[in-house]
Design a protein around this nucleic acid. Sequence first.
DNA 1: TTGGCAACCTGTAACGTTTCAGTATATTGA
DNA 2: TCAATATACTGAAACGTTACAGGTTGCCAA
Lengths: 347, 347
Amino acid sequence: MDRRVTKKGDDASGKERPTLKTLAFMTGLGVTTVSRALKDAPEIGAETRRRVQLVAKQIGYRPNRAGVRLRTGKTNVISLVLNTEREIMSFVSDIIYGVSEVIADTPYHLIVTPYSRSQDPLDPIRYLVETGSADGVIISRAQPNDPRARYMLEHGIPFATHGRTEMGLAHPFHDFDNYAFAGEAVRHLARIGRRRLALVTPPVGLTYYGHTVNGFADALSEVGASEVPFNTVSIDHTIEQIRMRTAQLMRRDDRPDGIVSSAAAATLAIVAGIEDAGLKLGRDVDVVSKQSSELLHLFRRELLVVNEDFRLAGSELARAVLGWIGGTEPGSLQSLSKPSEVLPYRV
Amino acid sequence: MDRRVTKKGDDASGKERPTLKTLAFMTGLGVTTVSRALKDAPEIGAETRRRVQLVAKQIGYRPNRAGVRLRTGKTNVISLVLNTEREIMSFVSDIIYGVSEVIADTPYHLIVTPYSRSQDPLDPIRYLVETGSADGVIISRAQPNDPRARYMLEHGIPFATHGRTEMGLAHPFHDFDNYAFAGEAVRHLARIGRRRLALVTPPVGLTYYGHTVNGFADALSEVGASEVPFNTVSIDHTIEQIRMRTAQLMRRDDRPDGIVSSAAAATLAIVAGIEDAGLKLGRDVDVVSKQSSELLHLFRRELLVVNEDFRLAGSELARAVLGWIGGTEPGSLQSLSKPSEVLPYRV
DNA sequence: TTGGCAACCTGTAACGTTTCAGTATATTGA
DNA sequence: TCAATATACTGAAACGTTACAGGTTGCCAA
């Protein structure tokens, strides 16, 4: 079955989508000349160039992606690789929009490549590399020793990671300064008189787990507060688990009077746990939490929040991959975003 | 610049990605035969077919997308078109995962095509159709008279809408039964003694605005309760606006004792507004809200919720587009999902 | 024996693009 | 004046795939 409705020939009539051949016919030039004229090649006369570009614009010529891709191998695709189970909800939408903003006026398309719990996180990456499905890749949940980053470096495909790695290899990344966040959180709690602090960590194994834990520990000793260990949960646990274990913790005699939480969803559970234990937020205990949308202050006005902007992260990551694809030194495409101040309830 | 690192020739050695030519060389057959053997064409001998398929699997042959696309026009791409400003956060992530689940074991890729406030919603659709960038499209925020659906029908590109249209034209859709939701909500409120009800509607202009309003009105007269008009906001308004106007409403003498909310984010604002007015949820007023993740019960235990499953919506929409692409009658690819019961706080 | 036919396989062309290796014309240098 | 050279353009080939229009072989009926 031939997909064409009518035979086109060289006549350039009809409603078919224009190709280089159409342009060549209309301008009376060769296909090669047209192709080069459109990309401002120097060996094409200035007038010819303008003429071709004018006609191209007039008839709305758009290069055929399949043609380009087949010939050059360039896909004009950026792939965002996401974990279907563990990714934070607002992260997904914000980062997509952030990426979109940046690639909107480029020829790039964004494809979303998900993988699930059951799979090796390397699987989708291998697929992308082996099939050459993308010119660049964005991954999240970076690990200190990240096999995905290593694999992509080995195979020479440009990528950017959300979060840093610690492999001594330079690659683009964007990260939120979680060391600073945890530190600020501790200092703020200390400032309002809290001395016994607990931390609800990021998932063990991700790089920013370490950053957060270190920021927390360093600030603790700086302000002379003490830590109440709370290693039984991380923000990757379910709402129910976090809630239950927080309640357990808060019923103990040596319970904390301040908690630092690395994610908004976990914070909802933490607060529920606190209240399950019959305690009151703001009186018996204060909680500082990261959030990426303005919801926590509506939830409990007593919550102390620090904002992390995922849309910004998306934009930065997109800029970074595009930069690398465009030939910029990967080591220079790294950015770290500083946390906002700890914000108390605004009336 | 030629992208190939080494000249391949016909020798099938090296680390290049295998093509039909490679397979042809290895099996000693012609390229055409290999191509047909892989798609189980009847004019290929049974043994040859098995042999080719075996070799193909062994060396991990994967058809080149650009080749197929160029030759056949088939992109193997589904595009999800999203509004960057107005889309509900959890909607984006859940629907993406829902779609992904379905296309995971197909050759399809998912591309996300966003558009913003400033643009005509038809723009991205036109782009997709004109450039032939996708085999199928999923759109959200369906309107009774939806120019996007009309355009795609006219241009013969398969699509599915999240929400129904009312143009008398058959096309695939998935929708949540918001008429039933609003009705159930009203009946539940009546059952617990609420008589003066207000509705926070979906965005005016979307089809499900009408469904919701009608379900609300019909149930009101069924149970003999009265409506407190609250037309100054919809769930597309900002948190601040909803909060402020809810507070205003709740300070009036004729304030409602029951509110039905069409979205979780709006509900947070509504509750804040209620409390701003010095009233207490569950005592002075009850609120029934739709939600798509389990957060509202953590927020205020007194909230009454109905769950809407966006991941399911994503799966259904994907199945629908794929069905249409596969030749199924579009009119038969329609589904409506019934709301859960109104759930009070679970201990 | 021969013609016909089924079963199985093959080469060529085309999709739209870019690159390579030119060609034709005008311009320059001596 | 003639050759060398720069300028402006061109055709053919190739990327990997599929559709079309054959080609060979073997077998059977006449």
